[in-house]
Every structure is written in C-alpha cells, then in structure tokens.
Amino acid sequence: MAIMETDTTASLTKSNKIIDLHCHLIPGIDDGSPDLEHSLELAHQAVAEGITHILATPHHLDGDYVNHRDDVIKHVTDFQRELDHHGIPLVIFPGQEVHINGDLTEKYDDLLGIDEDKKYMLIEFPHGSVPAYAKRLFFELRKLGTTPVIVHPERNHEIQGDLNLLYDFIADGALSQLTATSYVGGFGEKVQHISEQLVEHNLVQIFASDAHALKGRSFALREAFMKLRTELGQTEVDEFEGNAENLLNGMPVFARDYSRVDKKKKFWLF
C-alpha cells in the first residue's frame, strides 16, 4: 500500500500530499454517497482540496450496515476504475469504519485495517457512550498486532463530558482521529472547543474528513490544516499529515507529549 507521488500537489504540507483516512465516498453501500454521480462529485471536491489519497471507510457492523472485507475491496477496485476513466487524479484504498463490538476478535479475518497488514484499524464508538468492554477489546486487538484508532472522539457524548476518558485510551496505546469539520466549527462551537482541547493536549494524531454526500459533511481538511498551521505551526501540520501517511503504510505512529485535560475547564454536555 505504499504511497506514490502524484501530479496533484498540496503545497500546504511538506510532503505535497494530503491523505484522508476516513471517507464515505463509495457509492450505495452505507449512508455516504448514494450513487456514482455523487461519488464522482465527492472525488472532484477532494481533489480541489488538494487530497491525493483516500482510505474508503464504509460503516461496518454498526447495526445498519455490514460491508464485508472482500466486498469493500471489490467496490474500491470498481470505483478506482471509474476515477481513472474520468481522469480524476485520486488514489483510493479499501478500509472500514469498524463499529465496536464485543466479538470483533472473532470477526477479525473479515476486518480491514488502515494498512494492508492491519497494524492499525479505525474503531467507532457509539455516539452516546464508551462501552465498558472497550479497554479489554483494545487489549485483545493489540495482542493480534492491531492498534485501534478511535474515530471522531470529539463527537462521543461520554468523552465530551470527560476528555480524560480519551487520555486513558491513548495512555494504553491507542490512537485517535479528529474530524476536520469539527476542528473548524462545522459541528458547532461546543464540538469545536472540545476539538481544540484534544489538539492542544496531543490526544489526537491525525485529521480526517469523515466526508459524506450530505450538506455540512464535506472534506474541510485544507481549512483544518490552515487553522492548525496558524495556531500551532507548520511542524504540527507536517506531523499530522506524516502520521496519516505512516498509518496507511503500516509504519510506526505513536502518540507523543499527550497530557490530561484540566477537569476544572468547562465542557458542554449534549
């Protein structure tokens, strides 16, 4: 799954690439793009953002959608063919947004990681809570060689009430992914403030779009990186982008300099 340079560059980053590791652009398989027309439009939007590589991550095992490993690989192959046919300079890789379940280790062979060897895997919590078994499951996944990457923790209601719940997972070896739209205010001021705190305390390691073919669910990665550069500098931008590239290639990524969040600070509950 090694990433190659393309003719499309994103000068915002040192690598001249922007990699999106969470996106729902494969047509007709979850609540993302409903059809090929919308998927191609999403692809055009991605290229306009400077995005060069996307991990397609349809929902899996969330109670509404089941997207088996082999099916996702076929869908991605078919969609890449459409992109090439339409001359859209975007490279797509197969992945899943895996909803947390107590029996994921039993279904492990049907799961896709961020990288081909499943060293990293996107894991989604329910929106309202953090399951009590999550730490045990993460331990079991790590024994199998897979580091969990928690998606959009800033939108989980229980974590919103206590950001140190995420700290505990990071301290145990997990990683996490912040939605770019959250960081720039697309989900409201409350989620934006929480997102800024997670970045400030190094509790998230990458941005991703979680883009859907829905109003308000666009990519926003360029805007997020520009804000990150303004507030924390180019080095932070390049680290976030480099982390995304390393995750896709199965290379080492570690949380660094993360810290607990002062509980005296106010965070909004939903």
Rank of each mutant, 00 (worst) to 15 (best):
V72P: 01
I123N: 08
R217I: 14
F219S: 06
L141D: 03
H212F: 07
K118G: 04
T147P: 04
N16T: 11
I51K: 01
E82W: 10
P148W: 01
L232C: 10
V261S: 04
V76R: 00
I51S: 03
G173P: 01
R142I: 02
F219Y: 15
Y133M: 08
K119I: 03
K266P: 08
D71K: 04
T146H: 05
L21F: 03
W268M: 08
I114T: 09
D172S: 13
E154T: 14
Y108W: 10
L214R: 15
P252W: 09
K227S: 14
Y258F: 15
R155W: 10
E116I: 11
V91R: 05
C23W: 01
G128P: 08
H59I: 04
F270R: 14
L61Y: 10
K190M: 12
N246L: 05
K266C: 06
C23I: 10
I73L: 04
E140G: 00
D71F: 00
V253M: 10
D84L: 12
F93E: 02
V91M: 12
H60N: 07
I73K: 03
A10L: 07
V184L: 14
F270D: 13
S259D: 08
M1Y: 14
E49M: 11
A180F: 06
I114C: 02
R229F: 00
S195R: 02
V130D: 02
G145R: 10
V199M: 15
L228D: 00
H22K: 15
V91L: 09
S176I: 06
E82I: 09
F254K: 14
A174R: 04
D210T: 10
G186Q: 11
K14V: 06
P34R: 06
H127Q: 12
K107S: 09
R229E: 11
A208F: 05
A10S: 14
K107H: 12
